[in-house]
């Protein structure tokens, strides 16, 4: 607040509320800085879900606030996640720390759902849950995609190494053959060998 400038602008409310504003300590959390540092990662949910084999149709774009439908969706998402992805492994071994943090948050939200629902039985957590599970799938897909790329590269490298090994093996065999021939000639004609 600028020094000397009142917190409340309109006089009618100022006389009643200004004191409260002045006596309140400023916020200890720098929300502005935190927001600036927050990323805007989302991923193309529909594309990734399709890639995972999850059907994207009506209702997927919006969170449903009716509890049964939401839970049904969550359980569907989780079933897919378990079927297609190795949740535990990818949660513990994501390629970057930022992804690990995001995955753990999403995963914890999903795991903690039943207790939260018991303690706070209002609609908010249904949406939170749907969102968390969907986000988790997106993140898992991202992790798996990068792992797939790495695996494909390793496979390609391995093939190249195998080809090189075959080439080397052939060369070794050729050289061994030559050596054997040379030894045979030496044994058959030791004088020539000596002159040479």
């Amino acid at each position: 607040m600028a020094e000397g400038k009142p917190f409340i602008k309109n006089a009618v409310w100022q006389e009643r509320l200004e004191k409260i504003a002045q006596e309140t300590k400023p916020s200890e959390i720098d929300y502005k800085k935190i927001f600036e540092e927050t990323d805007n990662f989302s991923g193309n949910a529909a594309a990734i879900l399709e890639e995972l084999g999850v059907q994207t149709g009506e209702g997927m774009g919006e969170y449903d606030c009716t509890s049964d439908k939401s839970l049904e969706k969550v359980s569907d998402y989780l079933a897919h996640a378990i079927q297609i992805e190795n949740i535990i492994a990818t949660t513990h071994n994501p390629p970057t720390s930022a992804l690990r943090r995001k995955l753990k948050t999403a995963f914890l939200k999903v795991v903690c759902w039943p207790s939260r629902r018991y303690l706070y039985p209002q609609i908010a957590y249904n949406e939170d849950m749907v969102r968390a599970s969907r986000e988790m799938l997106i993140l898992l897909a991202k992790v798996n995609r990068s792992e797939r790329v790495a695996a494909e590269k390793a496979k390609k490298d391995l093939k190249e190494v195998q080809k090189q090994m075959i080439r080397l093996q052939t060369r070794i065999e050729e050289l061994e053959g030559k050596l054997a021939d040379s030894e045979k000639k030496t044994q058959a004609n030791p004088e020539t060998e000596e002159k040479a």
């Binding site: 607040m1 409310w13 509320l17 504003a21 916020s27 200890e28 929300y31």
Partner: peptide, 23 residues
């Protein structure tokens, strides 16, 4: 808005929250 609402000049979240609560 006129006097139909409270107009505040600073965005400090704690202060805004205290006015919300008071109102």
């Amino acid at each position: 808005m006129g006097d139909g609402g409270i107009c505040f000049t600073d965005k400090d979240p704690a202060k805004v929250a205290s006015i919300m609560h008071a109102l």
